[in-house]
Design a binder for these strands. Structure first.
Length: 852
DNA sequence: CTTTCCAAGACGAAA
DNA sequence: TCTTGGAAAG
């Protein structure tokens, strides 16, 4: 493969010009010396990574196929692929070995399966199937555990086994590690049971010719370390989100990187490590520096994503962690609108606020923002209920990511089970599922009898079934032969088709006919229409995989013939992809995103709203790592580009009973120190503020007339009091036309204001002219830093060490409205900008903010 | 032996 | 809201 790389490098390296100093340094860093890029949120790490790859190829003449880039999600991989394509072209990009840890391992394991003692047609066993296996293995221990008064859930056992695997401990290691020290400790019994189950679980997987997610990595390590020639192609390894790697993944990196002799580049940010619960080891950063002598660290500290005030608040949250290594982030943007923090009496009130506020923002931004610009980030998906219905009530389209994932839906798994069985007859979980779809009246007992026979005859369960229906073997106790005729017929028909090379979409179509799946859904599922649509969606997915540039490119040196059939590729893609990966782009632009904070990592939105920022939820009450919860909130906050909203409720229904809730200590600790970090007051978005939003997003500001039109429309159509009876919400106050008409001060009657700490006195009466309120609560923080930026450098520091923002913050006249006595001087505001008259206390329209 | 139906209980984050 | 488990019906 002669790389035709020697071209006008001056032209192809033009992309270097768009990098900042630190990024450039990272890109140009000597390829042979190990590199850690420590990149804060929004600091252009993907840009640095892709540029480095491009530079390795264009300048250092590395063949694209000698570069291995690993990410955690398919989404991250495809984004990287897309951006690299811009730099070096689609052709060469396709040759770069890019993918998730799991997919990359699977790729090689298919080729070298025999080396590690598995068959090339192994099936990836997902968590749900693993859980079922474990649940079965746990049954014999039920009585014993019950006698000791211990309840052991299958999920718990699975996660403990998974943790062991993530650390590279096999069943023997696990048992040895939990050798009894105290015979009377119930923990000993538990660990002993888990140890046995672990052993049996492994055996079950091997018998099923199957690897679970952890196995993909473990067998990958095994392959690469025992068969180093499998990595001969490798000249450089790059790892994204390194702070979330576990021990096994780190070993994998080391194994793959062996032939490169230290040509390793990783990108990470300890502040964004949020996967400790699935065994991520931040310590891998230090470990790498030890294992790869001479590792250089480069820090990307300039944030291009968020406004100054969002960054400032986010940093204030994360830096409460005293064990954290202090770091700063610089913003290239103006301070912008102060993040909003609000309190509500109920989930419904909170959800309503979010819905109406989204509508209001769309109106006040004159159409500059669309539904797709909003994200609601949740601590866990169950919180979406109230929010979804509130959005629905306001006719706001939304897409809930996470929650029940596409490939975990039963209708999808039904179909996949048949296909898995066709590809891998030994895969028991698929058999168990498919055998009763549609119902063939095969129960637990019958299956048990079949399994028993299979074990005795050393055949797979499926073979036993086939032999019974062929009358080559006697029937089992609960007669099964007649019941399974149609099942065997179906599997055989598909097997034949697949052998002839039928495409996955065709196979699915045929399967649906053979088992009459549509009718089956109609009969058994109340929501059969949606489910049937999902099946169609699966066919679409299958055809996409089929055409999809087969990224699994040829293996030039290692002549192992690829055993990948189209069916196998499709099945693997199904098991290793997640929901977000295949949802269409246009679709998501028109919908508000609702997702978990975890799933939001690596993404950004113009407006981010985070509800339920409460004790018990955030930090989650059962968390094992308190600081990780804090970092999670930091990650969530730093997804926001222009506007950030945090909210919490004082009462939440948990399992039937209503419990009182306090504001999250992560936030109350911040507001206690600096009450201006957040405001309870939603912004009116005068021209200058809108301009900042436009600037940060790199969009054209909306025409004033359009804004006016939409705002008027919004006021006409939205009933503010949908909120909450007595609480004349501040939103109402600010949005009412009365405000701009200069209504009497008494208009602002009483408002509950969620500033300060969570347990603050809930109500204060404010009697202040709304105009002053609006101006005071907003402009200083918005405007002061802008003038500051102009005066000083083009970049303002937002770290806690930064004194430049302090004066504004400590200005007594700038305290939140609720705590201010009646008489207030507006001098501070006027001095800075000169207020236009009659424009709500904001500068007149002609004023152009000094943008950077 | 299997299926169906109904009440009670739960509810963390993911490849 | 969805899952789970037990009891009765098929």
């Amino acid at each position: 493969m002669a790389p035709q790389i020697t071209q006008k490098s001056s032209e192809s390296l033009a992309f270097l010009k768009s990098l900042n100093t630190a990024q450039l340094q990272a890109v140009l860093h000597e390829p042979t010396s190990p590199l850690q890029i420590l990149a804060g949120p929004g600091s252009g790490k993907t840009k640095a990574l892709t540029s480095r790859i491009a530079h390795l190829i264009l300048h250092h003449s590395l063949p694209p196929s000698s570069i291995c880039a690993v990410t955690f999600t398919n989404k991250a991989a495809s984004e990287m692929r897309q951006r690299l394509g811009v730099l070096i072209g689609k052709q060469r990009t396709a040759e770069v070995r890019m993918g998730t840890f799991h997919a990359s391992c699977a790729l090689f394991l298919r080729k070298f399966s025999k080396v590690v003692g598995i068959e090339p047609n192994f099936t990836v066993c997902d968590a749900e199937e693993s859980k079922k296996i474990i649940s079965n293995l746990l049954k014999p221990h039920k009585n014993f555990l019950a006698s000791k008064d211990i309840t052991l859930k299958d999920g718990n056992v699975l996660s403990q086994i998974s943790r062991a695997k993530a650390k590279g401990l096999d069943a023997k290691d696990f048992i040895a590690q939990h050798k009894a020290t105290n015979e009377f400790d119930p923990q000993v019994d538990i660990q002993r049971v888990i140890g046995t189950v672990y052993e049996k679980y492994e055996k079950a997987l091997r018998r099923s010719n199957s690897l679970d997610f952890d196995d993909l990595l473990l067998f990958g390590v095994k392959l690469f370390s025992e068969h180093p020639s499998a990595t001969n192609w490798c000249r450089h390894v790059l790892v994204d989100e390194f702070q979330d790697t576990n021990v096994t993944q780190y070993e994998l990196l080391r194994a793959i990187a062996r032939p490169t002799k230290g040509c390793v580049t990783i990108v990470g940010d300890p502040d964004q490590s949020i996967y400790g619960w699935r065994s991520a080891e931040v310590g891998n950063l230090a470990k790498m520096r030890k294992d790869f002598p001479g590792t250089t660290q480069i820090f990307l500290e300039e944030n291009y994503r968020s406004t100054g005030s969002i960054l400032k608040a986010s940093l204030a949250i994360v830096s409460q962690d005293k064990t954290r290594i202090p770091k700063t982030l610089l913003t290239s943007h103006p301070s912008g609108t102060v993040p909003v923090l609000r309190s509500f009496p109920s989930e419904q009130a909170e959800a309503n606020f979010i819905a109406v506020e989204i509508k209001r923002l769309v109106a006040f931004m004159g159409g500059m923002l669309r539904w797709g610009d909003f994200a609601i980030l949740l601590r866990f998906s169950a919180l979406s209920r109230a929010i979804e219905s509130a959005l629905q009530k306001e006719a706001i389209p939304c897409a809930v990511l996470g929650g029940h994932k596409f490939f975990e839906r039963q209708e999808i798994k039904d179909i996949l089970a048949y296909l898995q069985l066709v590809d891998n007859p030994s895969f028991v979980p698929a058999l168990t599922r498919a055998i009763n779809v549609p119902s063939r009246s095969i129960g637990e007992k019958s299956l048990e009898a079949i399994t028993e026979r299979a074990l005795k005859t050393k055949l797979s369960s499926l073979e036993v079934i086939e032999r019974i229906t062929d009358a080559k073997q006697p029937d089992v106790k609960p007669a099964v032969k007649s019941k399974l005729a149609s099942f065997v017929k179906t599997v055989r028909a598909l097997r034949q088709l697949a052998a002839k090379g039928a495409s996955p979409p065709d196979l699915i179509q045929r399967l649906l006919e053979l088992i009459g799946y549509e009718d089956h859904l109609k009969k058994t599922q109340p929501e059969w229409e949606t489910r049937w649509e999902n099946v169609q969606e699966l066919i679409t997915f299958a055809s996409e995989v089929e055409q999809g540039v087969n990224l699994a490119n040829v293996e030039p040196e290692d002549s192992a013939p690829s055993s990948d059939t189209p069916l196998r590729l499709f099945l693997q893609a199904s098991m290793l992809s997640s929901e977000g990966d295949n949802q269409s782009e246009e679709d998501s632009k028109e919908k508000v995103t609702i997702t978990t904070c975890h799933a939001a990592k690596g993404l950004e939105w113009p407006v981010v709203l985070i509800p339920a920022v409460e004790q018990g939820t955030f930090p989650f009450y059962r968390t094992e790592d308190f600081q990780e919860e804090r970092r999670l909130l930091y990650v969530a906050c730093t997804r926001a580009q222009s506007l950030l909203y945090l909210s919490h409720v004082t009462k939440r229904k948990v399992g039937g009973e209503t419990k009182t809730r306090d504001l999250s200590e992560f936030v109350s600790a911040v507001t206690k120190e600096d009450s201006n970090m957040f405001t309870a007051r939603v912004s009116q978005f005068a021209a200058i503020e809108r301009a900042v939003v436009a600037q940060v997003l790199g969009r054209a500001d909306a025409p004033e007339a359009e804004v006016a039109r939409r705002v008027a429309e919004f006021r006409k159509t939205t009933r503010y009091l949908a909120f909450d009876g007595d609480e004349t919400s501040q939103l109402d106050t600010l949005s009412f036309p009365a405000l701009s008409n200069g209504m009497a001060p008494s208009f602002v009657a009483s408002s509950k204001i969620a500033s300060g700490s969570g347990g603050a006195p809930p109500q204060k009466t404010v009697s202040l002219h709304p105009m002053l309120l609006a101006a005071k609560a907003q402009s200083p923080q918005i405007l002061a830093p802008i003038t500051q930026n102009v005066a000083s450098t083009s970049t303002s520091t937002v770290g806690s060490s930064n004194p430049s923002l302090k004066p504004a913050a400590s200005d007594p006249s700038l305290k939140p409205a609720a705590t201010i006595p009646t008489a207030v001087s507006t001098g501070g505001v006027k001095r800075r900008l000169g207020m236009g008259k009659g424009t709500m206390g904001f500068p007149n329209k002609k004023f152009k903010p000094p943008l950077l």
